[in-house]
């Protein structure tokens, strides 16, 4: 009887874990970021982390940019074995209040790849500009 109950408990646990993992895959896991974009189109990492799926894209939404600036240029970089970074997507302009944007990589991204999303102000600026938003690295 005890063995049977343990078996049921194991099945139940396995079922919960499966559902949780499935939910992680199906539903987007947006992460909040907040940073400043340097003047004169300086680059800044918006967010970085591991890919949890094999989708070759990331999602970007709820963008808010300071001052009168309205758009940020975004692209993806992947970390190599020698700790260097390789750009794996083209630049794409993302507007404040727009989206959710899907930024596609032009290479095959695998689950477990360490990637970062880089950004720069779309216009040449004289000053630092704050930016906030949410990104799902997928």
């Amino acid at each position: 009887m005890l063995i049977k109950m343990r078996k049921i408990a194991c099945y139940f646990l396995a079922a919960i874990l499966s559902v949780t993992l499935f939910a992680n895959i199906v539903y987007a896991a947006y992460q909040y970021y907040s940073t400043t974009l340097p003047p004169l189109k300086g680059d800044r990492t918006l967010i970085s982390g591991y890919k949890t799926t094999g989708y070759d894209n990331i999602l970007h939404r709820n963008i808010s940019i300071g001052g009168s600036y309205d758009a940020v240029d975004v692209w993806i970089e992947r970390k190599n074995a020698d700790d260097s970074w390789t750009r794996v997507s083209d630049n794409e302009a993302h507007y404040e209040g727009g989206g959710p944007y899907t930024l596609w990589a032009n290479t095959d991204l695998l689950s477990g790849d360490f990637i970062r999303v880089r950004g720069q102000n779309h216009d040449l600026t004289y000053v630092y500009v704050t930016i906030k938003g949410e990104i799902d690295l997928r």
Binding site: S68, Y69, D70, A93, Y95, D123, V127
Partner: peptide
């Protein structure tokens, strides 16, 4: 004049953004 406008958070008063066909400055 452009730097002061940008510093005050009023980039829409920077002359340079009026000279380019496409900018993402609001206002």
């Amino acid at each position: 004049s452009s730097f002061v406008s940008a510093l005050l958070g009023r980039a829409n008063y920077c002359l340079v953004y009026y000279l380019q066909g496409f900018t993402t400055i609001s206002g």
